[in-house]
């Protein structure tokens, strides 16, 4: 029955072109802003900073690095926007009273949240993979550097875990929404906040230290840093080949390409574990809330 509901949820998401397009809109708007305005500024800042240390960097390599950095940010928000769009099925099920039909059929209702989370995770993964392919092709064409297979594999793994975490995390607030209007308001707020929390537009180092520390505690930000650390590895080596290790560390810390809390660097497995724990907590909260609403039809 999980398979049936899972399939149904995927069909409902992809049958709604508006929902699919809306999952991409914020991503491509952000990408356009970067390509047209912020990208060149970001490149210039890095080139000039290196120049002050008498290091000349190849602008194409820096551009490659910045594009990869942007891609990391994009891949951290797509699972959020796409998976929460997948969760919209639950709101519609309540609003259009479809839940009545499901509840009066011999479906064990504890299967419903599982199918919903799985479908939303897959939606998040598929949409993020699509963005990875589209933006990845642009980067390859612009930089002439293909992504190594292990990097692609690593990115897909992180995106999978991140999508699962986003689906679990968003499922809890979405389970309180009873109308699509309420749900849209929630989405607007979340979409607005997530770009800031994940430091998609500006490097985390620009922010005050307390804010940096707070954001770096959040697994969403850590997911961004994890993605950037994997995607930016090769371009960083190219740009910072003549720079001392401290210089590279400073860049990584400032740009959020490595996860640091206070003076401590956080290993990747800790981030993965942290994401898994958040997923579990919010999944339990969601399923408990869903079960509590037994009489809501």
């Amino acid at each position: 029955m999980i398979r049936t509901l899972f399939k149904r949820n995927l069909m409902l998401y992809f049958r709604h072109p508006k929902t699919v397009i809306m999952s991409f809109v914020s991503v491509f708007m952000m990408l356009m802003i970067y390509i047209l305005f912020l990208g060149s500024q970001h490149v210039n800042t890095i080139v000039h900073t290196l120049k002050t240390y008498n290091i000349s960097a190849d602008e194409t390599d820096v551009s490659w690095l910045v594009n990869c950095w942007v891609l990391g940010g994009l891949l951290s928000i797509v699972p959020f926007t796409a998976s929460r769009a997948g969760l919209g099925v639950m709101v519609t099920d309540y609003e259009e009273r479809i839940m009545r039909d499901l509840k009066s059929s011999p479906l064990r209702m504890n299967r419903y949240p599982i199918a919903l989370i799985l479908a939303s995770t897959v939606i998040g993964m598929l949409m993020a993979t699509a963005v990875f392919i589209i933006v990845g092709v642009y980067i390859i064409l612009a930089s002439k550097h293909p992504f190594p297979i292990p990097v692609m594999f690593n990115v897909i793994m992180i995106v999978g875990l991140h999508s699962f975490m986003c689906a679990c995390f968003m499922s809890y607030p979405v389970s309180y929404m009873r109308t699509n209007q309420d749900y849209s308001t929630l989405c607007t707020v979340v979409d607005m906040l997530i770009g800031f929390i994940n430091c998609v537009y500006i490097p985390v180092g620009v922010l005050p230290v307390q804010v940096q520390n707070f954001l770096r505690l959040l697994p969403f930000n850590q997911a961004t840093e994890l993605l950037r650390s994997v995607i930016c590895r090769a371009p960083m080596s190219a740009v910072f080949s003549d720079v001392a290790a401290e210089g590279l560390r400073y860049y990584q810390d400032y740009e959020g390409v490595i996860t640091k809390f206070g003076p401590y660097f956080v290993p990747q497995w800790v981030i993965a574990l942290h994401m898994a724990i958040w997923s579990a907590i919010f999944f339990v909260l969601f399923t408990k809330h869903f079960a509590k609403k037994r009489d809501e039809i």
């Binding site: 029955m1 049936t4 409902l12 709604h16 259009e96 009273r97 039909d101 059929s105």
Partner: peptide, 23 residues
């Protein structure tokens, strides 16, 4: 029910398959 409770975006055949699968 008074109000239709099938999935609006799915076809009749898909709706019948999905709801029938629940049994």
């Amino acid at each position: 029910y008074q109000q239709g409770v099938l999935d609006h975006q799915l076809t009749v055949a898909e709706n019948l398959w999905i709801r029938g699968s629940l049994y």
